[in-house]
Simulated assay, not measured.
Amino acid sequence: MIESIRRANAAQACMTLFAGQPMDWATRCHCGRLAAQAMMRMGRNAKLLNACRATTVRGVLTYLKRNKFADLVELMDATGLERIAPAMARPGDIVALPSAPGDGFGCSLTVALSDGRVLMASELSGLFEPVTPHVFVAAWRV
């Protein structure tokens, strides 16, 4: 399959599963699951992200600490994905955006769509929706 079509299909699958859904730790509808879904749709191993079965913020932070990750950026680096400049992100890639200072996560994981947009859990609406970010932390090629 052509790479661009495969990436578009992976991004669309993430949109279908997450867009309009409320961010909810109890149902595991959060940025870690979004990133894991993008990785799996692109045929990559999402073992580190899927290993965290926590259903609370505290549980996820405990998982990070227990596995000696300072934040989500370190966890994503440990997945073996190539780190890229956020401007180079193509559909299906993972882009880290800044999260609330001191939240322990260090970033919020999103999935690149097209035209510079990403799918993320919006702080304003509490729903997963496409947005155009202006500040980035990091990005990884899936």
Score class of each variant (00 low, 15 high):
Val111Asn: 04
Gly102Ser: 05
Gly92Asp: 00
Phe18Arg: 05
Ile94Tyr: 02
Phe128Ser: 07
Asp77Met: 08
Ala8Trp: 05
Thr56Asp: 00
Ser4Glu: 13
Arg58Ala: 15
Ile84Pro: 00
Ala87Asn: 09
Leu113Tyr: 00
Ala10Cys: 10
Ile94Thr: 04
Leu61Trp: 02
Leu34Glu: 02
Ala35Asp: 08
Gly106Ile: 00
Lys47Val: 12
Met15Val: 10
Cys52Ser: 15
Leu72Gly: 10
Ala51Gly: 13
Ala87Lys: 11
Arg90Leu: 14
Val142Leu: 12
Asn45Thr: 11
Leu75Gln: 08
Ala70Arg: 13
Gly116Phe: 06
Lys68Ile: 11
Val57Thr: 14
Gly116Leu: 09
Leu48Phe: 04
Met40Asn: 12
Asn9His: 09
Cys31Asp: 01
Val73Leu: 12
Tyr63Trp: 09
Glu129Tyr: 05
Arg58Ile: 08
Met40Asp: 14
Asn9Pro: 01
Arg83Gly: 07
Val135Pro: 03
Val131Tyr: 02
Leu72Phe: 11
Val135Ala: 12
Arg83Glu: 13
Leu61Ala: 06
Asn45Pro: 05
Tyr63His: 12
Gln37Ser: 12
Ile84Phe: 02
Val57Cys: 09
Gly20Ile: 06
Thr132Ser: 14
Gly32Gln: 12
Ala139Asp: 00
Arg28Leu: 11
Ala19Gln: 12
His30Glu: 14
Ala139Cys: 02
Thr55Leu: 10
Met15Trp: 09
Asp77Gln: 14
Thr110Phe: 05
Met42Ile: 00
Arg83Asp: 04
Asp103Pro: 07
Asp77Thr: 10
Ala89Asp: 00
Ile2Leu: 13
Pro130Gln: 04
Ile84Leu: 03
Lys68Met: 12
Arg41Leu: 11
Leu127Val: 03
Pro130Ala: 13
Val111Leu: 06
Pro130Thr: 07
Ala10Ile: 04
Pro130Met: 04
Trp25Val: 03
Ile84Thr: 03
Phe136Glu: 09
Leu61Met: 08
Phe18Ser: 05
Glu82Ser: 14
Ala100Gly: 05
Lys68Tyr: 14
Phe18Gln: 06
Val118Leu: 01
Asp103Val: 05
Pro133Arg: 10
Leu109Gln: 04
Gly32Leu: 14
Val60Asn: 10
Asp103Trp: 08
Val60Thr: 15
Ala87Met: 11
Ser114Ile: 11
Tyr63Arg: 07
Arg6Thr: 07
Thr110Asn: 14
Trp140Ile: 03
Glu123Pro: 10
Lys65Pro: 00
Ala13Met: 12
Ser99Arg: 10
Ala10Ser: 13
Glu82Met: 11
Met40Leu: 13
Met42Lys: 01
Ala36Pro: 05
Pro101Gln: 06
Ile84Asn: 02
Glu123Arg: 15
Val118Arg: 01
Leu72Asp: 11
Ala138Val: 02
Leu119Gly: 04
Ala36Thr: 02
Cys14Ser: 06
Thr56Gln: 01
Phe128Lys: 05
Arg83Tyr: 02
Glu82Ala: 15
Ala10Asn: 07
Thr16His: 08
Gly102Gln: 06
Pro133Glu: 09
Ser99Val: 01
Thr132Val: 13
Lys47Tyr: 14
Leu119Thr: 06
Ala70Leu: 09
Gly106Tyr: 01
Ile84Trp: 03
Cys107Asp: 05
His30Asp: 15
Ala112Ile: 00
Ala8Arg: 14
Lys68Glu: 15
His30Leu: 08
Asp71Leu: 04
Met23Glu: 10
Leu124Ile: 13
Val111Phe: 01
Leu75Asp: 05
Phe105Tyr: 13
Ala112Leu: 02
Ala36Arg: 03
Pro130Lys: 09
Gly80Asp: 03
